[in-house]
């Protein structure tokens, strides 16, 4: 097993080196496609635990800092890709903390096809039953949904739809001490109707193909949100940022998504990503234990 791991690691390193050598040949679109591929691989058949922290921020001693004690939400989620080209996803998310929200469960089906509405079900013990939630249609001009009340929206966390953007490699520069590509992404007319952002500028780590910084601009070309990534680590041979901080420059509030535990490529039973998981706690915990056993 150790020998196999060494071989896999070597292959990953070689792949990384070869990618660097051929950097000059990559277009902006190719770079983003590689980033998306890596991102998708970390969400397919994945079991993770994360912490969402939100606070009002300010600037003190040239540092961005929370101006109040952050509100913290701990979540556990399991996701799996489905459908054609595995572009649809089913995700179960359970709230672990705070105590007042413990046990709230959400089941989401997200479809890549814009003609298909996403579906969401919620379970609250006070309701006593599983409830379908009315939510925005991905096809109309409604704003993207917030992820558990944080500054992250579904637009920020969704993968795919690169073909709906004009992607340009602007320059090579540095960000957080790393060599990066600076890439502009401008939505086409269809995507512009759905998106809050008229332009997105991403800074992609040239070696790791991870976005270290993303700037989001409104229709007046004013920067309204900024995403900073840190704690970039190798997870199952894929580099990923385990700490993401989204700053809303209009409301002066930020949210940090800390991915405390992520396990990819595990065997997730299809029946786990059903409404049963929300209300049948005995079943849910038994299945989660099986998932935990896989990663030990």
């Amino acid at each position: 097993m150790n020998y196999l791991k060494v071989r896999l690691l070597s292959a990953a390193v070689l792949l990384t080196v070869s990618n660097s050598l051929s950097a000059q040949e990559l277009t902006g679109l190719e770079i983003m496609e590689k980033v998306e591929d890596f991102q998708r691989s970390t969400s397919d058949s994945a079991f993770n635990r994360m912490q969402l922290s939100t606070c009002k921020f300010g600037i003190k001693n040239s540092k961005i800092t929370c101006a109040e004690r952050p509100r913290i939400k701990s979540l556990e989620s399991v996701g799996k890709s489905f459908g054609v080209n595995l572009k649809d996803t089913k995700t179960v998310t359970i709230v672990l903390e705070p105590a007042s929200e413990r046990g709230i469960g959400m089941l989401s089906f997200a479809y890549d096809d814009s003609d298909q509405d996403n579906e969401t079900w919620l379970y609250l013990s006070a309701m006593g039953r599983i409830k379908r939630i009315a939510s925005g249609n991905s096809d109309d001009d409604s704003e993207p949904a917030s992820v558990f009340g944080s500054e992250f929206t579904t637009e920020d966390t969704d993968t795919g739809k690169l073909e709906e953007y004009s992607i340009n490699l602007v320059e090579e520069t540095q960000e957080s001490g790393r060599e990066v590509w600076k890439i502009d992404m401008i939505p086409n007319a269809d995507q512009a109707r759905k998106s809050r952002y008229s332009k997105t500028v991403v800074y992609i780590d040239k070696e790791r193909f991870v976005s270290l910084r993303t700037e989001m601009y409104d229709q007046y070309e004013k920067e309204i949100k900024r995403l900073l990534s840190s704690r970039v680590e190798l997870v199952d041979d894929v580099w990923m940022a385990k700490s993401l901080t989204m700053m809303n420059l209009v409301t002066n509030r930020l949210s940090n998504m800390a991915i405390l535990e992520i396990n990819t490529g595990i065997n997730v039973e299809d029946e786990f990503l059903t409404q049963r998981t929300l209300s049948d706690v005995a079943f849910r915990e038994a299945e989660l234990q099986k998932l935990r056993e896989q990663v030990k």
Binding site: Q51, S53, I59, S62, S230, S243, T245, N256, L260
Partner: peptide
Amino acid sequence: FAFDDDLFGGGFEFE
């Protein structure tokens, strides 16, 4: 400006 990621580092330590 430097961003202090340790603001939320408690989560990584708590586990």
